[in-house]
Simulated scan of single mutants.
Amino acid sequence: MTNQGKAALVIVDLQNDFCPPDGALAVPGGRDIAPAINKLLDLPFALNIATRDFHPRDHVSFASQHTEKQPFTSSHTITNPENPQETQETILWPDHCVQDTSGCELISELDTSELGLVVDKGQDKRVESYSAFGPPFRSPRVSMSQLADTLRHAGITHVFVCGLAWDFCVKATAIDAAKEGFTTFAIHDASRGIDRSAKGPAATREEMEKHGVRVIGLESKEFDMVRGP
């Protein structure tokens, strides 16, 4: 690693339930990014991290937990358990990534031997957590992961984010990494999104860039800092 800083790779939710052909919440093309991510794992990042949705069976984001609600089309307002004035609106999903099921596991195509850490998120049934850093509630924070502290303890200055889904958990994780003060890059061609409309990917990119995240590709010169001289 160069004197420019230390970089971490964060691979978001490359899990069976998010991948075809049998995933409960499969992202189109989700399994196809594994070879590109394995090549990233060959680079000398200071720390390689994978994240997983790791939900209890009665998680608030599941449509099955709400009367007369349907996955994908229904939404729900989640309240900060410690501050009713702070709320989050979320889409309701099919049951997915339930703890101790095969759908929760990282896909077999991912080279897990290169991982230094797996961060499980979404474990609190009361709140949604697209970001690997924790739910969006801040007044006060609830059910936050230790990811930010782990990165700082390792001396990480730069965070590269990829995985599933580009327009939800990749986006939220990258934005939170930037908010935590890390120089953050989101790798668009090592990610796949749910929204494949003409405007969807552009809107996701715009939102990330608004928060200081730089969107890059696999051939970007930004990887030079990882490779070193």
Rank of each mutant, 00 (worst) to 15 (best):
109 E>A: 15
41 L>Y: 08
58 D>H: 12
166 W>Q: 03
174 A>H: 02
82 E>N: 14
120 D>W: 01
28 P>L: 03
154 A>H: 15
221 K>E: 15
46 A>C: 09
85 Q>C: 00
128 E>H: 11
76 H>M: 14
9 L>A: 12
108 S>R: 07
110 L>T: 12
139 S>P: 00
151 L>P: 05
81 P>A: 09
8 A>R: 05
189 D>V: 11
98 V>T: 13
171 K>M: 13
121 K>L: 02
54 F>T: 03
229 P>Y: 08
111 D>I: 06
54 F>A: 10
20 P>E: 15
216 I>L: 10
23 G>T: 03
117 L>N: 02
22 D>V: 02
215 V>F: 00
69 K>G: 06
188 H>N: 02
28 P>R: 03
146 Q>V: 02
190 A>L: 00
153 H>A: 15
53 D>A: 06
211 H>W: 13
98 V>I: 15
89 E>F: 04
78 I>Y: 02
157 T>C: 07
207 E>Y: 05
158 H>G: 03
191 S>F: 03
160 F>K: 05
38 N>F: 10
12 V>D: 12
48 N>E: 07
1 M>G: 13
70 Q>I: 08
32 D>M: 04
108 S>C: 01
144 M>T: 08
188 H>V: 07
51 T>E: 10
178 A>H: 05
185 F>Q: 00
84 P>H: 12
169 C>S: 14
60 V>M: 06
50 A>M: 04
136 P>T: 10
43 L>R: 14
52 R>T: 10
148 A>H: 11
40 L>R: 08
33 I>S: 09
110 L>I: 11
61 S>C: 14
